[in-house]
């Protein structure tokens, strides 16, 4: 369970201080699904990065299962990301020179698994997103939707506790968008993940039971009774 208390993040930009997050309090239960919305530059991605241990708050605490990520040393934070967090990015962020299977394997490299086990688990993960036939394909040989599926397989191959997705459908057309959302929701249910997603797309946001809206660094939570 995530417990955020008084999280503030400030950036220095051209000698001015920018408040990306201001005194954010937020609780996300295990297995919850939360959508974060808000205008560009409002602090959505910053909050997601805080949750994923990619960045530290200027003040406040971010606890996951009682461990304050804000105070973890860099090496342990890296290990935490390797073991517990799955990321899905808007631009897929696949390594262009590695094929689908190898891209998925990159998430298992820090876990020091044997190569054979890595390969097997990567193949299974790709199978689970419907890409069992495309293990050897490079990102450039796949459509945007397929690339995002590879990215999802990469996020989930290590069985993380949390899945963080930053605009996962932002670069996809409408049909692909629905396809990816179906995949994500199915996997969320199957794996019992805590799933936090940033999106601009209101139609996607409406599918979530809780919606957090961030404006000028301040958060507002809305319960969505019409969630899918």
């Amino acid at each position: 369970m995530y417990q955020l208390r008084g999280v503030t993040k400030q950036y220095r930009r051209d000698k001015a201080t920018v408040d990306a997050l201001v005194d954010v309090d937020l609780t996300i239960g295990d297995g919850d699904r939360l959508v974060i919305q808000g205008p560009t530059g409002g602090g959505k991605s910053t909050l997601l990065q805080m949750l994923g241990g990619l960045d530290r708050p200027t003040s406040g605490s971010i606890e996951l299962d009682g461990v304050d990520l804000a105070k973890l040393p860099e090496a342990r934070l890296t290990t935490f990301r390797a073991e517990s967090i799955g990321f899905v990015f808007q631009s897929f962020n696949l390594i262009p020179t590695l094929n689908a299977q190898e891209n998925v394997e990159t998430a298992l490299v820090p876990l020091r698994l044997k190569a054979a086990e890595r390969r097997e688990r990567a193949a299974q993960a790709l199978e689970s997103v419907g890409l069992g036939e495309r293990l050897g394909h490079l990102p450039s040989e796949m459509s945007g939707g397929q690339q995002q599926r590879v990215a999802i397989a990469r996020a989930l191959v290590k069985n993380p506790k949390v899945l963080l997705a930053d605009e996962p459908t932002g670069n996809l057309d409408e049909s692909m968008r629905d396809e990816i959302m179906d995949v994500l929701e199915t996997l969320w249910k199957e794996h019992g993940l805590t799933f936090v997603m940033v999106t601009h797309d209101s139609s996607i946001a409406r599918r979530a039971p809780r919606i957090a809206t961030i404006r000028k660094g301040r958060i507002t939570l809305t319960e969505n009774s019409k969630a899918v």
């Binding site: 994923g52 890296t78 962020n93 390594i95 820090p110």
Partner: peptide
């Protein structure tokens, strides 16, 4: 972006 992604996936700086 590539190295940032790898670090996000848990690759240590040394690797």
């Amino acid at each position: 972006r590539e190295f940032g992604t790898l670090k996000a996936l848990g690759w240590k700086s040394g690797r």
